[in-house]
Amino acid sequence: MNTSRADTIWRLMTPDDLDHVTALAATVHPDYPEDTAIFAERLRLAPDGCLILTGAGTLCGYLISHPWRGLLSPPLNTLLGALPAPAERWYIHDLALAPHARGQGYAQMAIAKAEDAARAHGLGTLTLTSTRHALQFWARQGFAAEETSVEEQAILASYDPKACLLSRRVG
């Protein structure tokens, strides 16, 4: 399936999208399962940071992001309860694209939207946890590894042994 830019757009996620987001997450990230409740909570806590990519009437991708503080990334498949206040960075929880939507600039569009959200909240840094599979992608987007403590490294290992906490300044 070829995704045309003309009919493919990033839009705010709604609760009606959550089952589709969970299904795409299970397909794209089978080694990193998360419950629908995780996506629903992030949507409730930071609706301006939760987007979906739609095209030709189907879900092609999603972005889950929110304000955050510090370098202790949320463990995989864990509810937050609340966002930390005050926040000091914008955390990209997940960016996923269906295989047919990759390589067309949609990920860069999503990162730009995360930057817009960070700016709207007065935050100058994007941060994320990268799994071993995505490290090269994030490096190409200008993200670099943060120095992490033993506690932070233990949380990163809940993703995989080579997971890294990465950040970059908002452009």
Score class of each variant (00 low, 15 high):
Val21Thr: 07
Asp7Arg: 09
Trp68Tyr: 14
Asp7Gln: 13
Arg132Ala: 06
Leu123Asp: 03
Leu165Ala: 12
Glu152Val: 14
Gln104Ile: 06
Ala112Glu: 15
Leu97Asp: 00
Ala87Phe: 03
Arg102Cys: 11
Arg132Gly: 13
Ile38Arg: 15
Tyr91Leu: 11
Leu63Arg: 07
Ala110Leu: 08
Gly142Thr: 06
Pro161Val: 03
Leu45Ser: 04
Arg42Ile: 15
Gln104Val: 06
His133Gly: 05
Ala101Tyr: 12
Arg5Met: 14
Asn2Pro: 08
Gly122Thr: 05
Thr14Gln: 10
Ala87Ser: 14
Gly103Phe: 07
Gln136Cys: 10
Arg11Gln: 09
Ala56Glu: 10
Gly70Tyr: 03
Leu63Gly: 04
Asp16Lys: 07
Trp10Pro: 07
Arg5His: 14
His121Lys: 12
Asp160Gly: 02
Leu45Ala: 14
Arg102Lys: 14
Pro47Gln: 08
Val150Lys: 13
Ile38Phe: 12
Tyr159Asn: 02
Pro30Thr: 03
Leu72Ile: 11
Arg89Val: 06
His93Leu: 04
Leu24Ile: 01
His93Val: 05
Ala25Val: 01
Gly55Lys: 12
Glu147Ile: 10
Arg169Ile: 11
Ile9Pro: 00
Ala40Met: 06
His29Pro: 02
Ala85Pro: 00
Pro161Phe: 10
Leu71Lys: 07
Asp116Val: 03
Ala118Asp: 05
His66Gly: 01
Glu88Gly: 12
Leu18Gln: 10
Thr125Asp: 02
Thr148Tyr: 08
Ala112Val: 00
Leu53Val: 08
Phe39Leu: 02
Thr58Ala: 06
Phe137Cys: 04
Leu18Asn: 03
